[in-house]
Design a protein around this nucleic acid. Structure first.
Length: 297
DNA sequence: ATGAAAGACCGATGCTAGGA
DNA sequence: TCCTAGCATCGGTCTTTCAT
C-alpha cells in the first residue's frame, strides 16, 4: 500500500499530538466561547448571503459579513483563535505581533504568497464582520434576548492596510490590533484552552476542528455522562457550521466520520453516538492534561 | 411478507490546502 | 505557478431495520 507524503506527515503529527498529551507537554492556544459553542460556516456561503446564525442551547451566534468581503468561513476560524490567544497571553486589549508570518508559523501553515493572500482575505472577512453573541431565554410569556453586538477590533494597524504610511526605513514594523471591549471581555472572562498542536493538525479540516475544540471543552465541563440532541432546535445541527443536508442521515454519517477523525488525535475522547443516532453522549474527559510540575532544572 | 425509512458504502464534484 | 491531495457535499444504490 502506498502512503502519500501528506498522509505520512499527517500521521507523524497525530503521533506528536498524542505523545505531547501523554507526556503532559502540550502547548496551549485559546479560543473564545462564541466560536466554540457555535461554528462559523465550513464552506463559503452562497453569493449574497451576509447573515449567518448558529445556536447552541440558548446561546446564539450571529455573524454579519461585510458586503465587500462576506462572512468568514473555513480556515478563517484560525483568526479568532489567533486573536484570542494573543489577548490571553498579552493580557491586554492592545495586542501586538511582529508579522503575518508569525501567525502562519504558529499554526504550522506554509508561507508562500498564496498563504499570505489567503491570510489577508481571512483578516478582511473577520474584521469586516459584526458579531452578535448572547442568550435568549424563553420565560413563561416573553422571549428575553440578551445580546452583545460587537466587532473584533476597534483599531488596527496591520501589515496589509498600512501601505506607504510611516514606512520609515529600518524601523521595525509591529502589527497592532486593539480589540473591541466586547471581544476582549468575552475572551478574558471565558478563555477556552485548546491544544495548539491539534489545532495545527486540523487547521485544514474546519468541521473536524470545530467539533474537536467544542468536544474538548464540553467533555471537560461535563460532570458525568450527558446526552446532547443531534437534531431539533437545540441539536448539533443548529450548532455546527456544516450545511443543512438534504438527507438527515447524511449529517449523522458525517458526524461519525468527524468523530473517528477526532479519535485519531484524541483516542480517549468519550463522545459517542447512541444506538438510535438521535443523541451524542459525552462524559467527563480532558483533552488537555495539566502540565506536570517540572523538576527544578 | 412488504414497503418505507435509515444505514452503509461508493463515486463524482467543486473547492481549498499543501507541496514541489 | 502548477499539480496533487484532501475536505465537504451530494446523489446513487444496496443492505438492514422496523412497523404494519
Amino acid at each position: 500500500m502506498r502512503i502519500s507524503k501528506q498522509k505520512h506527515r499527517k500521521a507523524e503529527r497525530i503521533e506528536l499530538v498524542r505523545l505531547k498529551r501523554e507526556q503532559r507537554e502540550q502547548t496551549l492556544c485559546f479560543s473564545s466561547r462564541p466560536f466554540v459553542l457555535c461554528g462559523l460556516p465550513v464552506r463559503q456561503l452562497p453569493k449574497g448571503q451576509l447573515l449567518y446564525e448558529r445556536r447552541n442551547g440558548h446561546f446564539v451566534l450571529q455573524v454579519t459579513g461585510h458586503p465587500d468581503y462576506g462572512v468568514p468561513f473555513g480556515q478563517d476560524r484560525m483568526v479568532p483563535i489567533f486573536l484570542a490567544t494573543l489577548a490571553v497571553q498579552q493580557q491586554s486589549r492592545t495586542i501586538r505581533f511582529r508579522s503575518a508570518s508569525e501567525m502562519l508559523e504558529t499554526f504550522g501553515m506554509n508561507k508562500g504568497g498564496k498563504e499570505y493572500r489567503r491570510l489577508v482575505a481571512a483578516f478582511e472577512r473577520t474584521f469586516g464582520a459584526t458579531i452578535f453573541f448572547g442568550t435568549d431565554t424563553l420565560t413563561s410569556k416573553a422571549k428575553i434576548v440578551h445580546r452583545a453586538r460587537f466587532n473584533f477590533f476597534s483599531e488596527a494597524r496591520v501589515w496589509y492596510n498600512r501601505a506607504n504610511e510611516d514606512c520609515v526605513l529600518g524601523e521595525r514594523y509591529e502589527n497592532v490590533i486593539v480589540l473591541s471591549d466586547e471581544f476582549f471581555e468575552e475572551v478574558t472572562a471565558h478563555p477556552i484552552p485548546t491544544d495548539l498542536e491539534a489545532v495545527k493538525l486540523l487547521s485544514s479540516a474546519p468541521a473536524v476542528l470545530d467539533l474537536f475544540v467544542w468536544l474538548s471543552y464540553r467533555c471537560f465541563t461535563a460532570g458525568a455522562k450527558e446526552r446532547i440532541p443531534i437534531f431539533g432546535p437545540f441539536g448539533l445541527v443548529q450548532q455546527l457550521g456544516a450545511v443543512e443536508y438534504g438527507r438527515l442521515r447524511k449529517f449523522r454519517e458525517k458526524l461519525q466520520q468527524w468523530l473517528s477523525a477526532i479519535r485519531r488525535v484524541w483516542p480517549e475522547c468519550p463522545a459517542k453516538l447512541d444506538g438510535d443516532g438521535m443523541y451524542l453522549w459525552v462524559d467527563h474527559a480532558t483533552a488537555i492534561q495539566p502540565v506536570v510540575p517540572s523538576v527544578a532544572e
